[in-house]
Design a binder for these strands. Structure first.
Lengths: 173, 173
DNA sequence: CGATATTTTCAGAATTTCCTGAAAAATCGG
DNA sequence: CCGATTTTTCAGGAAATTCTGAAAATATCG
């Protein structure tokens, strides 16, 4: 019956490793993605040392990225009775994961863009040359679109899972 | 009347520089984002040399990133009659830009993820231990969700601009 | 307290990504 | 073809990011 455990270990290792590689494409570092993958598929909460050993990384690296994941809200600290050290466990619900990631991406990608577009649209509002008008119009169009995207993101993130699925299904039908 | 041109130049420079900085957050390199910003706000198509001079970058850098933007479809090569060298101009329509970026992100972020989840869900399908079942179920849930996202992305990207706005407006109302 | 376990920080090393500049290749008109 | 112009490639350097390992800080227990 240990062949099963072996198969599981292999599948999980592959998931962790590949998910880590993907993280790079994704703008988060490899270790963070790997830890996330590891904890998402962990039967129980894990300690820093277990994570270190499993991924063969340094304590500093494990610590920094665990805390970063906690800051994102993708994992939680768990304290066990009579135990001194911290355990970590991942949020496993896919809809929760999605909304957390969407919120963070909005904060890091959409909001700064909106700020820039706002400022540039503003600074060019009164320029009367043809080129100036064209520039202003381009800024305004981008601003409007990104603002739309921002609001959509909020709207969808705040939906209940069920409602979002319903909407999506309707859209895909 | 040259104060106006000065103001425009300043606003545009700021846009280019800030958009470049944002590109980094975004997983594309600074130069590529800067060139894109520059061309999006250019009154006319520009040559490689003009881009080099404007952004103060090397020929190799300018060339590589111009070609990369062409590969994405965010800019086009323009040939002028009686002129030997290539000019570049950007796609300026925001909806087109959005669909191009969405398509590329799907290709680079969603599809590889789906492939991994598929494989891992498959490899764990027959494991009968409780941990194995939990792992499989997590892979399956993620796969389903990401698959959904992928289809949604296609659907929205293939919409006409007007229809998408209509839908969005309804959603935001 | 003092001893011990655990977490946090961070300087410097390792790695990855990006850019330069120059040489090579391709293109074109005459 | 030849010479001139333009595009492309790429080795090596520069810059940015990530990781290690060890020391410092903090927490906990008797």
């Amino acid at each position: 019956m240990n062949a099963e455990a072996e198969k599981l270990k292999q599948a999980r290792d592959e998931f962790v490793s590949q998910w880590g590689a993907l993280g790079t494409q994704w703008g988060i570092n490899r270790t963070m993605a790997q830890i996330h993958a590891l904890l998402m598929t962990a039967p129980q909460a894990m300690t820093t040392d277990e994570v270190m050993e499993d991924l063969e990384i340094s304590r500093g690296n494990a610590h920094t990225n665990l805390k970063e994941l906690v800051a994102w809200g993708l994992i939680r600290v768990v304290v066990k009775k009579g135990e001194r050290r911290e355990y970590f466990e991942a949020e496993k619900d896919v809809w929760s994961i999605f909304t957390i990631v969407a919120r963070e991406r909005k904060r890091r990608e959409i909001e700064p863009a909106l700020a820039i577009l706002n400022k540039c649209a503003d600074e060019s509002r009164e320029i009367e040359t043809p080129d100036g008008k064209a520039f202003h119009e381009q800024m305004r169009a981008l601003e409007e679109f990104v603002g739309f995207a921002s609001k959509m993101s909020d709207r969808i993130s705040s939906m209940k899972h069920g409602f979002a699925v319903q909407l999506a299904t309707k859209l895909l039908s």
